[in-house]
Nucleic acid binder design. Structure first.
Ligand SMILES: [Zn+2]
Ligand SMILES: [Zn+2]
Ligand SMILES: [Zn+2]
Ligand SMILES: [Zn+2]
Lengths: 169, 169
DNA sequence: GGCGGCTATGTTACTCTATAACCTATCATC
DNA sequence: GATGATAGGTTATAGAGTAACATAGCCGCC
């Protein structure tokens, strides 16, 4: 049952972006929280590809887009909001953030991260979450959040490894 | 098959420490790498309990123990060595380090982390590693390393939650 | 024993990541 | 349009990690 993830295959990424932004608008509307210009802008920047972006990278992008200085708290507050609403995930191993393709359904943070091209693929495996909860319960542990970060090579990069190991863009 | 982990139960922790240090000595001897005084000292400090310690906390402890200033590179180099040899793991979600109770057997980094008492319990579940590898393979992804960090409440703290939610020592 | 290369540690300076504290602007509601 | 609440701007600082270079031990060899 091999199935190449969207992030790894050629696809119309504008579609990913518009879907994500529209989903965010609906979700915030439904919850009565404010998806302000800044927050939307940060979300859009995060979605510009399937690679996690650091807060300071986002800060520079914001500064460039708005042609004025943007300070860390500004971007961190937007990121905190997006994290709270489940619109993005934090990739701890990279100190970076990536958009969530299914923010409406509650789920844990499970990612495959390619060390060659930098892509992060979000898994959708409720059974895995359940198994982890089970293992934890056997140890008397009550799970609140899960972070699974698997590093390696994605389908694209695994094939090209011998030729070009270290490209980052 | 409930089984309270050692880290969570009353136990002779000096035994944990001496076991870990002796295992480290043997392992380094066998591999022909040098477990220097500094590296051993850092490992011992890390093992002083079952809670992950940050690099800067370790730095202060080192400075106190040696009654002289210790700079970041000193402790980071020791940590790098211990990580390479598999004697410790890094807990990404905490930016902290914890001793590995089974450094001789190759395995992934799977932890339960109690947000109340700060303890980190290392799981020993090869089946879980295998399942993760399988899920990744279905996405065409070649796994190199895994980091599973589950946050919640340990057996001890889950019972006491209503009384004292936020004790850290 | 003394030389030369290698590994480990010391030292300084810096980068990157994140937050505290305080102030101002905007929004919603009455 | 006053009032309270939320969002964003600003400054400063904390926390985590690394680069670059100097020094000190260690080891094998002559
Ligand atoms: Zn998600
Ligand atoms: Zn890739
Ligand atoms: Zn381990
Ligand atoms: Zn606990």
């Amino acid at each position: 049952m091999e199935h190449t993830p969207i992030a790894c295959s050629h696809h119309d990424h504008n579609h990913c972006i518009s879907d994500a932004l529209e989903a965010a608008r609906q979700l915030c509307l439904g919850r009565g929280v404010r998806l302000t210009d800044l927050r939307l802008q940060v979300l859009e920047l995060i979605w510009q590809n399937h690679k996690p972006l650091g807060a300071y990278t986002l800060m520079e992008m914001l500064a460039k887009a708005n042609t004025r200085r943007v300070a860390p708290p500004t971007v961190y507050r937007a990121l905190d909001f997006l994290l709270e609403q489940g619109l993005i995930h934090r990739i701890n191993v990279l100190n970076a953030f990536i958009g969530c393709p299914s923010p409406t359904t509650k789920h844990q943070s499970h990612f495959l991260i390619c060390r060659a091209c930098g892509i992060a693929i979000e898994l959708n495996q409720p059974e895995l979450s359940q198994q982890i909860i089970g293992v934890a319960r056997d140890a008397g542990f009550a799970v609140e959040t899960q972070s699974l970060e698997v590093s390696g090579l994605c389908a694209n990069c695994a094939g090209n490894t011998e030729h070009s190991e270290h490209r980052h863009e």
